[in-house]
């Protein structure tokens, strides 16, 4: 059997020179515009201003920076948990047989996904800002006299990011639930399990790979999120990405920005590599 499989895989392959010719532009582009610059940025963090680990010592000893990193982890974790709680039922609804509900759910999940994060962050400002829709409505209704302070808080960042990242939680779970054979819940019911038991003992365990992939994706994306914290957050909700940008553009301390980038990169890439088996990015891009 193995012979046949390998033989089939070899048949009709392109020759090595042709293959290299076809892949060369792709590799060259990514190497020069992507990996080389990032490599250089990370390198400056240990070579400048002097070849030492000073930048990292600074990052890990200043309470301000430690607080930013801790806050980033907390917000990313909060986003993941809330996206999971909100996303699982929606994924379950989307994976159901039938026409109306699954279609409606899919539209409500995909339309925000295709809308840029910038536009969605802007919409949140319009909703919860001092003169935003919610405050105006409450004042018009006479329920409050002074506008509520909702924007530029951690809560605003959390809500905005959860909203933007929610589709990335729903889609992997949906994909896992959809690949669940419809016969399994039926078999469980036939064997006497009620709906709750069927869910807890059959559906939930089998959808865990999707849950795991969704959580990982949301957590990793949340760690490095820039736009939403920059627009919805205030000075008290500084996150890693915003700190990097501040160090680079305001303090003009590129080596230190490089050091923070290295830490962020280690976290996101490390998590992704460690759990790459569960993370099927192609499923998220090529959602059906």
């Amino acid at each position: 059997m193995t012979t046949t499989g390998r033989a089939t895989a070899f048949r009709g392959q392109l020759s090595l020179p042709l293959t290299l010719l076809l892949i060369a532009p792709l590799v060259a582009l990514l190497a020069w515009t992507f990996f080389l610059p990032i490599g250089r940025l990370l390198l400056t963090s240990v070579t400048e201003p002097t070849p030492s680990l000073d930048n990292y010592r600074r990052l890990l000893t200043e309470p301000l920076h430690l607080r930013v990193m801790l806050r980033t982890l907390l917000i990313a974790f909060g986003c993941t948990v809330s996206a999971l709680l909100l996303g699982y039922p929606v994924a379950a609804l989307m994976a159901r047989p039938g026409r109306f509900w699954p279609k409606l759910t899919a539209i409500c999940v995909l339309v925000p996904l295709w809308t840029s994060a910038l536009v969605r962050s802007y919409a949140w400002i319009a909703l919860i800002g001092r003169r935003g829709v919610i405050n105006t409505a409450l004042i018009d209704a006479g329920l409050i006299a002074q506008p509520l302070n909702m924007l530029y808080t951690s809560a605003a960042v959390l809500v905005g990011m959860t909203h933007i990242l929610l589709p990335f939680m729903v889609l992997p779970i949906f994909s896992a639930l959809l690949s669940l054979p419809a016969d399994l819940p039926r078999a469980a019911a036939n064997l006497g399990a009620g709906r709750v038991r069927t869910f807890l003992t059959i559906v939930l365990p089998l959808s865990l790979p999707g849950v795991f992939a969704g959580c990982l994706l949301v957590f990793v994306m949340a760690l490095g999120f820039y736009i939403t914290p920059a627009l919805l957050g205030g000075p008290r909700t500084l996150m890693i990405a915003t700190l990097i940008s501040q160090q680079a553009t305001e303090a003009l301390d590129w080596p230190f920005a490089g050091a923070i980038s290295t830490v962020l990169l280690l976290m996101s890439v490390g998590l992704t590599v460690a759990f790459r088996r569960v993370l099927r990015l192609d499923r998220v891009v090529a959602h059906d």
Partner: peptide
């Protein structure tokens, strides 16, 4: 996967 802010600065 790599956070856009890192790409941007690099």
């Amino acid at each position: 996967i790599i956070p856009p802010i890192i790409v941007a600065i690099a």
